[in-house]
Design a protein around this nucleic acid. Structure first.
Lengths: 215, 215
DNA sequence: TAGATTGTTAATCGATTAACAATC
DNA sequence: TAGATTGTTAATCGATTAACAATC
């Protein structure tokens, strides 16, 4: 039996942050209204697509006038859950982990990394921007106690599944996985994979193609 | 007039690194052949999709036997241009830049970062894993002299367009953009954007949805 | 009012999945 | 040979784009 609620289209979800960034910038100029024609022109999208995308926020526009900028900003933020901070654990305190801990843009997304973990003795106890690196075995206990819902995996592929199990055991609801590994989770746990290799593949395949055609 | 050569489907390109990783692991066990049923089961894909995807490499399989593992590995690598090293410039020597410089997995993708740039006086002259940070204004001259084709932008959004212009001026053919900004390039220059915010949006939207439904 | 813009339905496009004959 | 697997065509699904009436 299929009990799935028809979920929101992924391409639309992926475009929302781009709208949000644009609208926040517009809000700084105290602009009150914006048409989707305007948004579309700036972001190089189709106006109809912009209208469809914005529809999922529940905000309606006014013909001839457009959408209220602050209303849209608030609606997108709350739709994404970016209006209030979400605490997250990061596992894997290598250079990628350190980069994410130091990544300032996360603040705009309401993501707050509150603790880092590693199983490498050499890294445990160190501090990365005021965040102490704790031993991985403490994940379940702390995740539960601190009511953490998001886990970020920045460890090597080999460690990804063990870390996943620790996170899940600690009651984590969603995993943002930067490791190039297919992790397995129980039903109901959300996984979002960041595959840098996929992105690079698109780039190099096109480059290779262009060079093949070019000469 | 539309002179576009019908390009390869992006979803297929994005899956190729996953196949490659799986096949390389299989090759280590000296396995000679693999069926797409097998691949599909392990990667949780549809077998027909696997067959269609592998088709673009030009490799054909044999009924009842499957595909030659080493043949597929070689074919995917050369299709992606991952068989020989590609030198790249990285611009923006912050924590994300440092993370990418230290990211070992890039070696498997044939990506080789040969120089880092920044316009921040404080960073210029420093060394990140044997790579010296040079001033950004040197990009065009060096890119041309060293025949660099790939530029990686890990700078803040505000700097992204200026950096793009320097890279393009230096004759760079493809830009891997990690800055949350819409960069504009002349026709023929390839841009691939890595938008962490898009990925996080999918994660948090689903989490928010689940919590809304849950209780 | 006139006309720009929204909201919505229909058409198109592209990717995924199903069906099945060919084949080793 | 029998049957698992490929290669390919057709059907389905979902997202994008086009068309247009409603509206302020």
């Amino acid at each position: 039996m299929n009990t799935d609620i028809k979920s929101f289209p992924v391409p639309t979800l992926r475009r929302l942050p781009t709208y949000l960034r644009f609208l926040r910038k517009l809000a700084e100029t105290d602009r009150e209204f914006v048409s989707c024609t305007h948004i579309a022109r700036d972001l190089r999208l189709d106006p109809t697509q912009v209208r469809k995308d914005l529809e999922i926020t529940g905000i309606t526009g006014r013909p001839r006038i457009g959408y209220s900028v602050p209303e849209l900003v608030t609606a997108i933020e709350s739709f994404l859950g970016w209006n209030n901070n979400r605490d997250a654990f990061l596992v894997g305190a290598g250079s990628l982990g350190a980069a994410l801990i130091g990544y300032k843009a996360f603040r705009e997304y309401g993501l707050h990394i509150v603790a880092a973990f590693d199983s490498d003795e050499a890294k445990i106890g160190r501090t990365i921007r005021d965040i102490e690196v704790l031993p991985s075995f403490k994940i379940p206990e702390l995740a539960e106690r601190m009511h953490i819902h998001i886990g970020i995996i920045t460890a090597p592929a080999e460690a990804a599944q063990d870390i996943t199990d620790l996170l899940v055991f600690g009651g984590i609801k969603a995993i943002w996985n930067f490791a190039p590994a297919n992790i397995v989770v129980p039903e109901g746990v959300i996984v979002e994979n960041v595959m840098l290799s996929s992105s690079l593949a698109v780039l190099t395949a096109r480059l290779t193609e262009a060079q093949r055609v070019g000469k």
